[in-house]
Each structure stands twice: as C-alpha cells, then as structure tokens.
Nucleic acid binder design. Structure first.
Lengths: 210, 210
DNA sequence: TTTAATAAAATTGTATACAAAAATGAATTT
DNA sequence: AAATTCATTTTTGTATACAATTTTATTAAA
C-alpha cells in the first residue's frame, strides 16, 4: 500500500488546470491569442498536452478559435437561460426528494457564506448550487452545468466582489422552500435568484465586468 | 448531424465522422474497446487525429474510457429529461416568436415525414426538432442538443423503424399550438411528445434496442 | 495611396519515436 | 485451486520532426 500522494498528475491535466486558472484569474486577458508553442514553452511541456487542454477549454467555451473568450452580455444571458431551466428543475427535484442530511449541508453552505471571507463565500455559494444540481440525480444535467462552470466562475467572482444584496438570503429562501417540500416554490425561487444574479451583473459598470 | 457527409478536408474531421458513423451504424458494437493504433491503421492515418476524434466522441458520450458506449435505459432517461426541458422551452419560444416562413418549413417537415421513405422520415423528423431548437435563439441550447445528437440518432432510428404510432401526428399538434401562439400548449405537447418517444423505446424488446 | 500578388514567417496539423503506465499472463507460493 | 509476484506485452502519454496551412510582410502595379 502506498501512502505517498500523487503529487504530479499527468501533464495533460496540469496544463488544463494551469491554463484555465490563468484565464479565470485574468492573467490571460480576454481576446489574447493562444499560440501552442509559446504556451508549451511557458509551461515546460511539449505542444501535445497543450493542444488537448485547448480543445477541452474550447468545449467549455473559455477559448474560441485560439482566442481567450471574454463572454459578452448576450452569451451570459444565454448561459443563464440554460441554468434557469436546469437548476430550476433541480431545485424542484430537491424539494421532492432531498434527504435531511443534504439539507443540513445546504444550510451549512448558507451559514459559511454569511460568515466567511470573500473566497469562502464564493466557495460556499458554489457548493450550494452544486448540491442542488446533484439533487436532480441526473448525470447529464450535472455534466452540462459543470461544463459551464468555468464561465460562471468568472461571473460569480464579480457578483460576490461587488456584494449583490440579498444573494445569500435568496439561497435561504430556496432552502426553506425545499424544506417545506414546495416544489413549485423552489423552482420559481431558483429561477428568480438566477435572474437577479444576471440582472445585477449586467448593470455593473463596464470596467467591473470580468 | 448526418451519416456519410461529403468528404471533409482535415484528417481530424474525417476520422471523427468515420468513427462516429461506425458506432452509429453498429459496425463498432457497444462495449468494443478502441485501440488507437488499430483504428489509425484501419483508417490509414496516424494516431494523432484518431486521439482527437476519440476525445470529441467522449465529450458527446459515444465513447467512455476507450469503450464504445451502448447507452442503457437509465442514460436515455437522463438525456430525455434534458431534452424535455430544453426543447420544451424552445417550443414555447417558437410559439412566442416564430415567423411564418419557418412555420411553413416545419409543416414541410411533417409532410415529408408522412410521405417519405424510412430514411427521409428520419431526416424530416430530425429537421423538425432542429428548427424548433433553433427557435430558442439560444446558441448554448443548440450546442447542448447538438452534443447529444449522436446518441439521440441511435435512438431515433429504432423509434422510426418500429413505427411508433402517432409520432408525426404529434409533430402536427405541436405546430398547431405554435401557429395558435399557444406557448403553454406548445411546451406541454413537446414534453409529452418526447416522453411518449422515450416510453415507446423503453418498451421495445431488448433485441430491438440500439 | 491603394490594391494585388507573392514571398517569408508563423502557426497549426499530422506522423513518428520513445517513455510511462496499464494490462496480461506465467511462475511461485500458500 | 487461489492468490501473489514479477516479467512481458500492449496501450497510452508525451516529445519531436516535418508538412500543410494560414498569417504577415513586402513589393509591384493600378
């Protein structure tokens, strides 16, 4: 039995994560043209794992024909339309099926979001949504939401940083509806919540976006 | 997505299409383990374009850790849950916004499905759904549906081949609701239609599936 | 100055070689 | 026989070389 943790995963995955993070943190600004050879040199690997990373990030919508995507308002609107449908449905499922233990974990996300630092709040909010999506018990839905996660992350950062009012309270309302087994309410509140998120972001001054 | 498209330029895309078609036609049966080198030799290319094709087909759910996926009933149920949400929404949008010209094209799909051969009917039915999905005017939704297309194709083949009753009539009902600008009706009918498709398939004898 | 044509450079696509890892199978022990 | 070890083979991951293509720069013509 081996006790040592695998420190170095495959170059492939390392490149993917590194590249993704560079985009998410803004180190690679929107519009930047990605050149495989250059990235390979930067990360000390060959072009092969870089290519696969780029392909994957293209799938996720973070790269579009070799350029870092800076999602515009239109694209965000489209993504949120999908989120409202899928996460709304998931909230409904949660109200119908969710066990007490998971509800407690949802409450914990809310509490941590209230109490924590900026990063902790972002984390807790993400976990809240993830738990509800998983409540759909539909791996296809989980996969789709997961693919959009990178772009949503960029978005969430701005929304938390500029402290949208009532964000965490809305999470509480959703959980309350789930606890009350109010499926219609849970779905409606989740959709409203996402709509409010989007509206808040869209009204941010241009320089605050992404 | 259609089988045996016109010959494409890059080996990459050619491999992808060839491989996908081999899976869809059953030439590569579900469960088959795909070995890059062997496929490369078969298709007369190197492993490089093969790898990229496999990665893409993994994204589409047609390959899962190097094996051809034979989607089971559970997976189909999950996919149809997503389709009901997204295509239901699209039908709603169509009822709200769709122009006369596109409605005429939808009618044409229905007429062609009634009159045509087995292949023509499949094509027409696919076009009907595609047109409605596009009516959502949401590229994200189009992309998601498109990714699931390969698996849905396998499915559709069985449903048309075993002549599900009322299938085309249901398309007509949906179009009627769209024409009447009845958004709720259009969404409801679309969801029912997809549910009926799924139910029909799930009740097929085992040897008829896929 | 603008446009067209084309050469040069940069970049991506593909093939191939080699290394790492995983799977297979035979020999050994229990 | 079942499990364990270890060597062998197969398969995948990565690097590198080269070909094809695209982009950019340059020059010549309008």
């Amino acid at each position: 039995m081996q006790l040592s943790k695998q420190v170095s995963q495959s170059a492939n995955i390392q490149c993917y994560e590194q590249l993704r993070d560079k985009i998410l943190t803004g180190e690679l600004a929107g519009g930047t043209k990605l050149v495989e050879e250059r990235l390979a040199e930067d990360m000390g690997v060959s072009r092969t794992p870089i290519r696969e990373s780029i392909r994957r990030l293209e799938q996720e919508g973070l790269i579009k024909n070799k350029r870092v995507v800076k999602p515009g308002d239109e694209e965000l609107r489209h993504i949120f339309e999908v989120r409202m449908l899928l996460e709304g449905f998931s909230a409904r499922c949660a109200a119908n099926y969710l066990d007490e233990a998971t509800m407690a974990r949802l409450q914990d996300c809310i509490d941590r979001a209230f109490a924590g630092t900026y990063e902790e709040t972002m984390d807790a909010n993400k976990s809240f949504h993830d738990l509800i999506v998983e409540a759909s018990r539909n791996p296809e839905i989980v996969k789709i939401i997961d693919r959009m996660q990178s772009i949503v992350y960029l978005f969430r950062k701005a929304v938390v940083f500029y402290k949208r009012p009532m964000l965490i309270e809305e999470h509480q309302h959703i959980l309350d509806a789930i606890r009350a087994r109010d499926a219609d309410g849970a779905e409606r509140l989740m959709k409203q919540h996402l709509q409010a998120d989007l509206d808040f972001y869209l009204h941010l001054p241009r320089e605050a976006k992404l």
